[in-house]
Design a binder for these strands. Structure first.
Lengths: 200, 200
DNA sequence: ATTATCTATAGATCTATAGATAATGC
DNA sequence: ATTATCTATAGATCTATAGATAATGC
């Protein structure tokens, strides 16, 4: 029994799959999806390209697994998200540039034609905007600063998260991603500081 | 004289180059940079791939020309930008999804390793954040809502612009990019509406 | 002379299929 | 039987080089 334990074939297979998905996340972070080759992923787990195809019969099948992984990752339940949890998530993301890079690269590619992740991101954003709308309403009620409603603030919240990721990935020294995100939350909360132009 | 006019060889050459760069913008919008082939660009201007290499001897050389084009495009002079001009730019961008898609795809790819546009975007963002800081200071002075300074608001402004582009490209029906951007500007200006949680 | 293009082609990759071999689990 | 891998390989691409041909501009 070369594995030295009682793991079933099925369990070992699942573990191998997970290992492959992790490798794929890395390779996509480095080269994007279109630039990632099955051979590069295979090599990273010590398989030949054809051995990898035993687990994921096409490149797209592997991408699907990667995207599923993401959904579990920062598993935003459709239910209640709190804004302070969001800030904590951004803080946490600041400690794992690899994952952030994988999905920022995928998001960027996804706007190109026929990209296999396009539908995934489109639907994900609809869902996330709805979730954020709910979180904002719970936290701040119906009226936000600037005369905004939760519906109108939600896309901004999402945009800030994504946009900051690009600036931070390109230049982590110059951009304090979690700090900037808290700044934005403060803006929505109408926190301290002055109203516009008041002081000087 | 097959061209029927007095255009010099040099001028015709320049025109051909411009034509090629336009084609490259399209192909990159459709497939990203890594996914774009020189042959696809060549075909679009009615050349063979090798004919194209006469004008741009490598794929990277063509990318450099594309990025230069961009700098002229929304030529943000290092000098004064006004916030209302920014809003107008976002409005204008809403009418040219092709260009937005080209550069959103490039930005996404640029975070991957050894991407030939990485340095370009890193430097561009440093410049743009500085420009925006100046514009915010001119417009709103030293104190912004939420206790922000122009320095801290600038990365948020940039992030909102980029992030909204992705949401809008993926789902133009659901996202009013220019409207959302104006919402954000209103937030910075401390416009109408209530302070946090005031009403309900 | 220089410029604009073309044909031919080398040399790398890439995805995916076919089919073999060995080990594992009923 | 099923699962895990491998070798071999077809069939597409891709970038880039070499070298020819024809037209343009001193």
């Amino acid at each position: 029994m070369p594995y030295g334990d009682a793991m079933s074939t099925r369990a070992r297979s699942e573990e191998r799959r997970a290992e492959i998905v992790r490798a794929a996340l890395e390779v996509i972070a480095e080269r994007g999806y279109r630039g990632a080759s099955m051979a590069a992923v295979a090599e990273r787990v010590g398989l030949t390209q054809q051995g990898l195809l035993h687990y994921f019969p096409t490149k797209d099948a592997l991408l699907v697994a990667v995207l599923k992984e993401r959904d579990q990752w920062d598993a935003v339940p459709d239910s209640p998200w709190r804004i302070d949890l969001l800030a904590a998530l951004v803080e946490y993301n600041g400690m794992r540039p690899g994952i952030v890079q994988t999905f920022s690269a995928l998001l960027g590619e996804s706007v190109t034609e026929d990209h296999p992740a396009r539908e995934y991101f489109t639907e994900r954003y609809q869902r996330v905007r709805a979730t954020m709308t709910g979180a904002l309403r719970t936290e701040y009620g119906e009226r936000l600063p600037g005369g905004l409603t939760p519906e109108r603030a939600a896309p901004l919240l999402v945009a800030v998260m994504d946009g900051l990721q690009y600036q931070w990935l390109l230049d982590p020294e110059s951009v304090d991603m979690p700090g900037a995100f808290r700044d934005f939350v403060g803006l929505l909360g109408g926190a301290a500081g002055d109203a516009a132009g008041a002081g000087h």
